[in-house]
Write a protein that binds this DNA or RNA. Structure first.
Lengths: 190, 190
DNA sequence: GACCGCTGCGTACTGTCGTACATATGACCT
DNA sequence: AGGTCATATGTACGACAGTACGCAGCGGTC
C-alpha cells in the first residue's frame, strides 16, 4: 500500500495522485450516513472514512448539503435501477409478483443498510427541499416500474405496501418471513 | 404574564414558581423535534422553546438522550391510545374498517407533525437501543387494537399497509385523497 | 417565624463543528 | 524541459454544542 517505504508515521503525508477522489468521497459519505446517520455525518467523519485530509472536503464540495444531496441521489438511482431491471425482466404478471416478493425478501435478509438509508433520506427530504426532488424521482421510477405489469392505482398502492412491509419488518424484533411477505403481497394482488 | 411590573428587560429574570416544568419541557422537546428534527434538538433550543434558562435542563434531565426518550415515549403513548380507542369503539368489522380509514385521513389532513415524529422515532430507534422498546411497544399496541376486529396475520399486514400509505402519501407532492385511501384499505380487507 | 432543602438561574469550560485560506506539488500540455 | 493550473494538504477561526457548578430564593415543615 505504501509507495514510499515509511516516513509517514506522524509527519506530513506524501501527496497522493487520486483521480476519482470525488466519487470515493460520495461513497464514503453514504457509508457514514448508513452507519452513523445524517446527524453524525460531518466533513471530518467522511474524510476519515475515505482517508483524505479535511481540506479535501471543501475543495471538492461547496458545502455539506451538497455532499448529502449527491450521496442520496446516487443511492436512490442505484436502488431504483435494480428495482426497474427486476420488474422489466419479468415476462408476465405472475413473475412480476414474484419479483416484488424477491425484492422485499432480499432487502430484509441483506441487512438494514438500504432501509436505513431510505429512512434517512425521507427525513432529510422532509426538511431540505433540495432532497424532495430525489425522493420524488425515486418514487416515480418505482411506480413506473410497477406499471409495466399493473395499472397506476394498483402500482401506487403496492408501492406503499412494500414500503410499509419493509419498514415494519425491520423495526420488529421478529421480522416477517419470506412466506409472510408472499402471503401479504398475494393477498393484495390476487 | 409578568407578575412583577417590569425590571426584566435585560437584567436577571425574576425567579418563577413553576411546578410541572419538567412536563412542559418534555412537550417543548416534542415540539422542537417535530419542527426542527432530532438533530437540531439541543438543550438550548428546548430551553428557548419552553422559555426556561439553560441551567434548568441539566437539573431536570441527566442527559439529552433522557429527554428524547421521555418525549418519544409520551408521543407514542398518546398516538397509540387514540388509535386503540377508535378501534375499541367500533362495534363491528365494517366500522372498524371505517375507523382505520378515518385515522389515516386525519393523519394526512392534520398536517405532517405526527408522521414526522414517527419517522424521527424510527430513525432514532435504529441507533439507540433504549428507543427500540418504545417502537416495539407502539407497534404491539397498534396490532392489538387491530386484533379486536381482525386475525393477527391480517392485523400485522394492515398495520404495515397503513404505515406505507401514510408515509408515501406525505412524501408525495400529490397526497392520496381520502377516496384513494378508502379504495386501498377496502381492496385489502374485502 | 426560622430553617432547610428543592428548584430556579446564570455562566464557564472543553470539545467539535463548518468553512476559509495560504501553500505545496506533480500531471499534463506545448 | 519547463510552465501552468487543477488538485492536494495543513491549519486557523468563529460559532455553538453538552455539561458542570456555584449561588439565590422560596415553599413547606417544625
Amino acid at each position: 500500500m505504501s509507495r514510499s517505504t515509511t516516513a509517514h508515521s506522524a509527519g506530513r503525508r506524501p501527496r497522493r495522485h487520486d483521480p476519482g477522489r470525488r466519487d470515493r468521497l460520495i461513497d464514503a459519505a453514504l457509508g457514514v450516513i448508513a452507519e452513523h446517520g445524517v446527524a453524525a455525518t460531518t466533513h471530518r467523519e467522511i474524510a476519515r472514512a475515505a482517508d483524505v485530509p479535511l481540506g479535501s472536503m471543501t475543495y471538492h464540495f461547496a458545502s455539506l448539503d451538497e455532499i448529502l444531496a449527491e450521496a442520496f441521489t446516487r443511492h436512490a438511482d442505484a436502488v431504483a435501477t435494480v428495482f426497474d431491471q427486476r420488474l422489466r425482466a419479468a415476462p408476465d404478471r405472475e413473475s412480476a409478483i414474484e419479483a416484488v416478493i424477491a425484492v422485499i425478501s432480499d432487502q430484509l435478509l441483506g441487512g438494514e443498510r438500504d432501509l436505513i438509508l431510505a429512512v434517512e433520506l425521507y427525513l432529510a427530504a422532509a426538511r431540505k427541499p433540495a432532497l424532495r426532488a430525489v425522493t420524488q424521482a425515486w418514487m416515480q421510477r418505482s411506480r413506473r416500474a410497477l406499471e409495466y405489469h399493473f395499472d397506476p392505482t394498483t402500482a401506487r398502492e403496492v408501492d406503499a405496501l412494500i414500503e410499509g412491509l419493509v419498514l415494519h419488518s425491520a423495526l420488529s424484533t421478529e421480522p416477517m418471513t419470506p412466506e409472510q411477505i408472499r402471503h401479504a403481497i398475494h393477498r393484495y394482488l390476487n
